[in-house]
Amino acid sequence: MSAPARRILLVKTALDGHWRGLSVVARALRDAGFHVIMGGMITGPEIVRAAIDEDVDLVGLNVGGHAAVVERIIAELRAARPELPIFAGGVLPPSTCRRLAELGVETYPPGSSLEQIVEAAQRLTGVEAGKA
């Protein structure tokens, strides 16, 4: 019997409703066998609650704003579930990518391929390629 699908929570960190990028990524992850939970535009504490309630294996942050907001969310998630991996995509200037890398968060700015993002999700949730 195969293991249950790994669970990923995808959220938007900003109150910016552009959803095209997130939509493409969410569907690529679903197609790869992940169970994707769309959290929407929720705050740090709400993200923590959703991550716990949904018992997710990975959190994906769709960034559309300032690095400081993202850093605060990461700190809140780490305080509640230190072992939970986090990765980020969206509007991520190189300086934000470097800052998030220092915090142990992988970043996938525009131009990243869906293959790279799916591979990262598999690696971060400890599944072999092709089996979410």
């Binding site: 960190t13 900003a14 109150l15 910016d16 409703g17 535009m41 705050t43 740090g44 704003g65 300032h66 690095a67 400081a68 907001v69």
Partner: peptide, 18 residues
Amino acid sequence: ADHLYNVDHPDVVARRED
């Protein structure tokens, strides 16, 4: 503007740097 929130709305305060 898009949400018709003042800056002291909790959803804005949570993302004040944005």
